[in-house]
Design a protein around this nucleic acid. Structure first.
Lengths: 332, 332
DNA sequence: GTGAAAGCGCTAACAG
DNA sequence: CTGTTAGCGCTTTCAC
């Protein structure tokens, strides 16, 4: 049972109380069109007195556009997507837009269902992670006529607007960095790559870069399920049990890398002399551990901000590459 | 400029195409009321053919209740509120409710403004953190007639529904634990308590408990701004510079405590023999560091889930105490 | 500068 | 089982 619109004050009642027409109240409230100062006073007084709260549902239906922005995100389990939401919501709130969200758990089918549910709210824009959508999702989004923003990836074709950075480039630069440092017995620890396709792209371009250099990946350990610090630790433990002579390990992200780092601390494995560790994301915590984590810092908050700004400004279709920053750190 | 409802298929067009009345289409789509299997077929075929997406804005206006649930949260900077959102959104999505959110940055004035903006969408419920609201917010919420859920705190009077646990009890038990372990030169490192009133409650009941035991707090260090791992590190560094003989430090939360832990690791301070560390929240990462963090684990995801379930079920006003779990860990 | 009236797309009685 | 008819509360012409 939902909320009943009980005893809600309507615009008509405000108009009546102020002794003016409904359209006048509407104009005053939206500060649009013309009205006298005196009228304004009376309307505002009535609004105050009655405790009127405009009904945006009705307003949106009557007018031609909504100020809802829909986020369809894969996960809320680590700080990555909250960072994006944070950046976006700051901009949206300033512009009187309202953020709406749902979580797909990295399931493309769920993404399609949730995107459809979102479209029913007729949002000004739908924001999704990356480019990997089902045909149904893509078709539906295109047909909707609503703006679409794909976030945090640039390796593919944008439906409309894309804001982020290249995961392939990130994987490549990570490999190049480790090679430059002279590591040549390199391993990988990652989480479910089928679902997290951006992590998958990083991994594959990482491997390609190693191959080209003639220093192929020695071993890898993939854990099922979402990334976590504990799985990073466990993954490294397993990897080292199989491949004893690694000199560096690339992790699917910082959460996993931190787990690896802690494993080394606990086992007395010297970092980076005995084993180097490299992550991805550039989480704040990586800067405060005794040896700053070597990683790639991604502009997550900025991605949200820019995406929101483009929607608010109704910008034309475009791809915005925000780049990323390689942090040399002390672990690799 | 917002999204234009361009060339959108309407229910009337579907009805026309299917050769039935509008209400029949509506009934079929909502699977409510009665209609023949044959009618159902024809309607669904038309829906499919035209690519019809129901307009929930119009539906909500016409019917008597919305399936929007509004979250007004203080922050997205750490994992605490995302955890709550995650728990809630899973339940809401299953029940075809839609989550909407805005972020207050722990500013009560902003909370009032954002709550007002939320109310304009006529949500089924508004979910807020804790009990500390401006009079304006409380009054507005009460007058709205919409359900209100206060989350993550139970120390105060609920407006309607409250789901969480007692922060005062958490502070008290943390102190009792440290006392039981025999620590008696106890310090505190915290972040901005004016804004984060729940952390403030934990701190004050922590201190009261120490006072009662005749072992008052020796020193404390409060950093401006939100909690962070780095500020935890910095806070402990500063605190130890002033108070050299502490044997335990209570932190405002796990992020801060982890910073303190890393400071000790880097400085070669033995934990817990030389200095004990105690946190709050029970983040996953605290379990994977070489010495599991001693802390209090709070049921954040469950808080979101229960809150959502109560709203979906239109439960009566009530206070749900989910409790918390003290993790003994290895740092205190 | 202001009001009357016609919808926005849907749901909810109410007849049939 | 199904169609017709009023609205939901607002914005938006369009006269005045």
């Amino acid at each position: 049972m939902e909320f009943k619109h009980q005893a809600t004050v309507t615009l008509a009642e405000v108009a009546e109380a102020a002794g003016v027409g409904e359209s006048t109240v509407s104009r005053v409230l939206r500060n649009h069109g013309s009205f006298s100062g005196k009228t304004r006073e009376r309307v505002m007084a009535a609004v105050e007195r009655l405790g009127y709260v405009p009904n945006r549902i009705a307003g949106t239906l009557a007018s031609t556009g909504s100020r809802l922005v829909a986020f369809v995100i894969p996960s809320l389990s680590n700080i990555v997507f909250p960072d994006v939401l944070r950046g976006a919501s700051a901009v949206l709130e300033e512009n009187r837009y309202q953020a709406v969200f749902s979580v797909t758990d990295y399931d493309p089918g769920k993404e399609e269902a949730l995107a459809a549910a979102m479209l029913a709210w007729r949002p000004a824009a739908v924001m999704l992670a990356g480019y990997e959508h089902t045909d149904g999702t893509a078709k539906m989004l295109r047909a909707s006529g609503c703006r679409v923003v794909e976030l945090l990836d640039l390796d593919g074709d944008a439906l409309d607007i894309a804001v982020g950075f290249s995961n392939r480039a990130a994987g490549r630069e990570s490999a190049a960095f480790l090679l430059k440092r002279g590591y040549n017995r390199i391993g990988y620890v990652g989480h479910d790559l089928k679902r997290d396709t951006r992590a998958g792209k990083r991994f594959s371009s990482f491997c390609e870069t190693l191959d080209i250099a003639g220093v192929p990946l020695v071993a890898h350990e993939i854990l099922a399920g979402p990334s976590s610090v504990e799985d990073g630790r466990l993954g490294l433990e397993r990897l080292l049990a199989r491949a004893t002579d690694l000199d560096a390990v690339y992790f699917s992200n910082d959460d996993m890398a931190l787990g690896g780092y802690f494993h080394c601390l606990a086992q007395g494995i010297a970092i980076p002399s005995q084993l180097a560790i490299f992550g991805y994301n550039g989480l704040d915590i990586g800067r405060t551990i005794p040896q700053p984590l070597s990683t790639i810092r991604t502009p997550r908050v900025a991605t949200g901000e820019i995406a929101a700004q483009l929607i608010v400004a109704n910008a034309p279709p475009q791809v915005v590459d925000l780049g990323f920053e390689l942090i040399e750190g002390a672990t690799a």
